[in-house]
Amino acid sequence: MIKRVLPPSIPLLAVIALMEVAVRQGWVASYLVPTPTAILKAMVESRVELAEAFLKTSAGALLGFALSTVGGISAAVLLSSSRTIQRSFYPYAVFFQTVPIIAMAPLLVIWFGYGMRTVVASAFVVSIFPVIANTLTGLLSTDPALRDLFQLYGASRRVTLFKLRFPAALPQILTGLRIASGLAVIGAIVGEFIGGQGLGSVVDVARTQQRVDKVFAAVLLASVLGLALFGLINLISAITLRRWHASEQS
C-alpha cells in the first residue's frame, strides 16, 4: 500500500508547495493561479454551493454514462449481428464521433431546454462511441473454434451471445467503459456550461467574477468525480475478471 501511494504523492506535494511559494513570492500573479491554501479556503467557504453542484454534476454524468453503457452495448450487439447492418451503420457511428461536442451543445439546449436533460444528453453523446467501438471489437473477435463448439452442440444465436460472445468480450467492454467514464464527466461539464447548473455553471460564474480560486476548486471536484467513476469501473473489472483475465492477475 505504501509503495503504491508514496511515489505519486511526492510530485503532488512538490507541485502544491511550489504553487504556494510561487504565488506568495509574486513569481506568478495570483489572479492567474491561486495558492493551494486559497483554493482550500474557497472550498470551505462555498462548501454548500459546491456540494450541491457536485451532486448535480455527478447525477448528470452518471445518467449519461449509464445511457451510453446500455445504448452503446445494445448498438454493438445489433451491429455485430450482421455484416450488412455493420456496413450500413458503423460509418455513421464513426462520423458521429468526430462531431465536436462543444459545437453541438447549443443545439442540445434548443432540443432539451436548460437543465438536467441537456447535461445528460451531452454526457451521453460524448461517451457512447468508445462503448460501441470496444464492445463491437470484442464481440467480433470471438475465438472461431469456440464458435464451432457452440454450433456443434446446437446453441442458438441468443445462447451463443450470452454464454460465449458477451463474456469473451467483457475485457474490451470494460476498456470502453473506462474511457467513456472520463468522457461522460467532460460531457456533463460542457453541457452545464450551456445548460446552466452543477460544477460547469460554478466555473462559468466564478470566471466572470474573476474568482480563480473557486474555478480551481470546481475543476478539482470535477476531477475527483472523474476519478471516482474510473475507480468504480476498475473495481467492477477487478471483481469480474479476477479469476480468468491476464489483465487482473498479478
Binding site: 473454434a145 469456440l146 460465449l164 463474456p167 483475465h245
Partner: peptide, 11 residues
C-alpha cells in the same frame, strides 16, 4: 470435437 489447443472458456 477436440481442437489443437484446449479452447476452454476461461471465465
Amino acid at each position: 470435437f477436440v481442437f489443437q489447443d484446449a479452447h476452454l472458456l476461461p471465465w
